[in-house]
């Protein structure tokens, strides 16, 4: 429940420019030089800050003129402080997928196949976020490959919300094949989310892939006390993501494993501070 509230608040905070929804215009203030940690299109009428993935692609595309220090630095700080807690708590598109998955239908459970598919997002990161923008950077042609061909958040938050507004008839008139391709991608991903838990996060999202690279170092998140763990596997069975162990690169730190652990070996921590779950053995011994 707390996590759902944090997800809702963060989605609202990312899109606090409510006037933009009414007017069909995007926010153009100075806050947009900052990036939010989660996936949230900067062309959403409500967006008050930049999308880290869009900013990264544009920084790579401009890297022939200027090294991408700023965005890389921000992403490094996000990864070190929050890691994939961002996916579990601070991503509006993750929230949307979780809500869609609540629609009562038959669900596709995780399997060795979904575990293999979870590696796909690293290929998306390499090809669409890094290689395509870098390739075109040398031709002085900015091309954010992921935003252009895949990003369902951009289509939903940017395209749908902007183009549906009556004030944006001129933009609507420009919609062509690419627009319909992106709509098809978005519908595919949203429909799949009803049947597969967080299918975009698990198989496609390059931002999650990026944050997952620093999973072992992230300050905040679900941590396993190796000394207490009896290796029963209850946490792995409970987890809806394709994790191999608690807190690994696939874990979005939702904390659903904390309650089911029979030996209270899992806790949600910020460094040494326990935010949820059992206290550390040292503290228990002292008390």
């Amino acid at each position: 429940m707390t996590r759902r509230l944090i997800q809702l608040y963060s989605a609202l905070l990312y899109n606090a420019h409510l006037k933009g929804f009414a007017e069909g215009q995007i926010y153009t203030g100075p806050l947009k030089s900052l990036c939010v940690p989660g996936l949230n299109c900067y062309s959403c009428p409500g967006a008050v800050a930049a999308c880290p993935l869009g900013a990264l692609q544009n920084a790579v595309a401009a890297s022939a003129d200027r090294p991408a220090f700023y965005v890389v630095g921000l992403l490094l700080l996000f990864s070190l402080l929050l890691g994939r807690v961002i996916c579990g708590f601070l991503c509006p598109f993750g929230l949307l997928q979780e809500l869609l998955h609540k629609i009562p239908t038959k669900k596709l459970q995780k399997s060795p196949l979904t575990r293999k598919l979870s590696r796909l997002k690293y290929a998306v990161l390499l090809i669409f976020v890094l290689a395509i923008p870098a390739w075109y950077a040398f031709r002085r042609l900015p091309l954010p490959g992921f935003c252009k061909f895949i990003c369902p958040a951009g289509t939903l938050e940017g395209a749908v919300l902007l183009l549906l507004h009556p004030a944006n008839g001129a933009l609507r008139a420009m919609a062509g094949g690419l627009f319909w391709w992106k709509c098809a991608m978005m519908l595919l991903i949203l429909t799949a989310s009803v049947f597969v838990f967080r299918c975009f996060c698990r198989f496609v999202c390059p931002l999650g892939a990026l944050y997952g690279l620093m999973a072992k170092l992230a300050l905040l998140g679900v941590k396993l006390d190796e000394g207490r763990c009896i290796g029963c596997g209850t946490c792995l069975r409970r987890c809806p993501m394709d994790i191999r162990r608690v807190g690994d690169s696939e874990c979005v730190h939702c904390g659903s494993c904390i309650e089911v652990c029979p030996v209270q070996a899992i806790s949600f921590r910020a460094g040494r501070i326990v935010l949820r779950g059992p206290e550390t053995p040292e503290k228990e011994a002292q008390s």
Partner: peptide
């Protein structure tokens, strides 16, 4: 981040984010 602010990276992010991204919305 500090170097990025100094070399104009933050300004680039702002310049991109305050315009409607035609790629993002499929145009």
């Amino acid at each position: 981040v500090a170097l990025g602010i100094l070399n104009g990276g933050a300004r680039d992010v702002l310049a991109k984010a305050i315009r409607i991204c035609s790629e993002c919305i499929g145009l």
